[in-house]
C-alpha cells in the first residue's frame, strides 16, 4: 500500500512522488453526489448573550438545525477575523458570529469592535470567492432563544442553497482501509547505520 492510496490532501498540488497534479475541488463532487451532505457551520457565540440564548433555546426544547458547531468566546469582540478565515481554509461551509446587541456588551465595547471587523471579513472573503451568505454576523441576546433558533435556521438554509464550500481540510487524514491491522511497533523509516 502506497502513501498515494491515502486520501491525504495536505499537498494537493504535489502527488506522493512530487509530481504536480491539478487539484480542483476534489471532494466537492463526491460530496454533492451524496444526497446526504449537510452544511457544517461554525458558530462563535459570546458567553454572556448569544451562548446563553442558545442555551435557553436548548432548555426550552426549541428545535433548530443541528448543523452548527459552537465555539464559546467571552465576547464577539474576541473573535479574531483569522478564526473566520481559517474556518474556510479548513473547509467548513459557513460561519456564524453572534454577539450582544450594541449597548449590552458585558465588556462594554467588545461588540462595537466586532461590528467594524466582521463585515470587513465578510467583504474580504466575498472578494476571494466565499459567497456572502456563508458568513452571518448578528446580535442575539441571552433571552432571545427563539431568535437564536431563527438565525441558525436562516444561515443553515442559506448555506445549504449555496452548496458545500468544500475546500479540503489541509490536514485531513482520511479513513484507513479497515483491513489493515495496526502495528504494535513503529518500524524505522530508514535503516540504521
Amino acid at each position: 500500500m502506497d502513501i498515494g492510496d491515502w486520501d491525504l490532501v495536505i499537498c494537493p498540488e504535489f502527488g506522493p512522488t512530487g509530481e504536480a497534479v491539478s487539484q480542483t475541488h476534489p471532494t466537492i463532487s463526491a460530496k454533492v453526489a451524496q444526497t446526504t451532505w449537510e452544511p457544517v457551520i461554525v458558530a462563535f457565540l459570546c458567553n454572556w448573550c448569544s451562548y446563553a440564548g442558545a442555551d435557553l433555546a436548548g432548555s426550552s426544547r426549541l428545535s433548530y438545525p443541528a448543523n452548527v458547531r459552537v465555539v464559546r468566546v467571552p465576547c464577539s469582540g474576541r473573535v479574531n477575523p483569522m478564526f473566520v478565515i481559517q474556518c474556510f481554509k479548513r473547509g467548513f461551509d459557513g460561519v456564524l458570529i453572534a454577539g450582544c446587541h450594541p449597548g449590552d456588551c458585558h465588556y462594554a465595547k467588545g461588540n462595537y469592535y466586532a461590528r467594524r471587523r466582521m463585515p470587513l471579513v465578510q467583504e474580504l472573503l466575498g472578494y476571494l470567492g466565499v459567497e456572502p451568505g456563508r458568513i452571518r454576523f448578528d446580535w442575539v441576546s441571552a433571552s432571545e432563544s427563539g431568535r437564536f433558533a431563527e438565525v441558525v435556521s436562516e444561515v443553515t438554509e442559506a448555506v445549504r442553497k449555496l452548496g458545500p464550500y468544500g475546500r479540503p481540510s489541509p490536514i485531513a487524514v482520511a479513513m484507513l482501509p479497515t483491513d489493515i491491522a495496526p502495528v504494535t511497533e513503529i518500524e524505522p523509516v530508514h535503516e540504521q547505520g
Binding site: M1, D2, I3, G4, W6, L8, I10, C11, F14, P16, T17, G18, E19, V173, L176, I180, P182, V183, T184, I186, E187, V189
Partner: peptide
C-alpha cells in the same frame, strides 16, 4: 521537481501502540 516546496515524508494514523506509519514512496 527534485526537492518540491512541500514533500510528504510519512503519514501516521492512530496513537500509542496502535500507530500505523506509512513512509512516502
Amino acid at each position: 521537481h527534485f526537492i518540491p516546496q512541500v514533500e510528504p515524508l510519512l503519514a501516521f494514523r492512530g496513537s500509542g501502540k496502535a500507530l500505523t506509519v506509512q513512509p512516502a514512496a
